[in-house]
Design a protein around this nucleic acid. Structure first.
Length: 221
DNA sequence: GCGACAG
DNA sequence: ATCTTGTCGC
């Protein structure tokens, strides 16, 4: 289908694609490489998209791509993907190492229509994906204070409360991050991967590196 | 009408 | 997202 340009079309596309999300991991799912994706803004419509691929085990950077672009879709909570997807896909296309998992800077299923940026990326590429957000979209109780503690992230759904993700403490005493499934992976595995990607800081290395490259791109020529 | 609201 | 230095604390 065509890339939507209106709010109504964007919402309709999410409603249609949400049925394709897979929330389980393939029995043979192996994650050796992980990509971090992020977008930075130079102005309201000039953006830089980044895709960084890490070795999942050693956290060594295997490849990095930065692309600049323009965007016409405004920022609207819930329609975030329509603003950032185009650049991110361009960056992802140019990476030379195939990622086994995509880590998006935002929500996956923890979304009003259960189809956030991470779901868009996963369904579009068929690559397992997860969303790691700095802020929650949903309610949660404070997880335990030690690294690895987690609690359910819930949102109001058709049949009452739905567990849409998890508040995960990646370091002792820091604010939790909000993990939700994007596509082709289960929530437990998603959280385990985030912990593996965040051995030292609150945010996963994928997010940190992508963010650094992103603002480096928008601030310098 | 008022507050919420990923980046 | 972005505006942005030093500073308090482990």
């Amino acid at each position: 289908m065509e890339w939507p340009r209106t709010v109504d079309d964007a919402v309709a596309l999410q409603e249609r694609l949400r049925t394709q999300v897979i929330t389980t991991s393939a029995p043979d799912l192996r994650i050796d490489t992980v990509a971090g994706l992020d977008v930075g803004y130079r102005s309201n419509d000039t953006v830089a998209g980044v895709c960084v691929v890490f070795d999942a085990k050693t956290l060594v950077v295997l490849d990095e791509v930065v692309v600049e672009d323009t965007t016409d879709f405004p920022y609207i909570a819930g329609l975030f993907a329509f603003r950032e997807m185009p650049v991110l896909l361009r960056a992802l296309d140019r990476v030379t190492v195939a990622p086994d998992l995509l880590v998006a800077d935002g929500q996956g299923l923890a979304h009003p229509r259960r189809f956030g940026l991470a779901c868009h990326l996963g369904v579009h590429t068929s690559i397992p994906s997860i969303g790691v957000a700095k802020n929650a979209m949903g309610a949660f109780e404070q997880p335990g204070n030690v690294r690895g503690s987690m609690s359910d992230l819930v949102m109001d759904g058709d049949n009452g409360d739905e567990v849409v993700g998890r508040a995960l403490r990646t370091q002792d005493g820091v604010k939790p991050v909000f993990v939700s499934v994007g596509h082709k992976i289960d929530l437990d595995r998603a959280c385990a991967e985030v912990l593996r990607l965040a051995p030292r800081y609150r945010l996963p290395e994928t997010t940190r590196r992508a963010d650094t490259l992103t603002r480096q791109a928008v601030s310098s020529g």
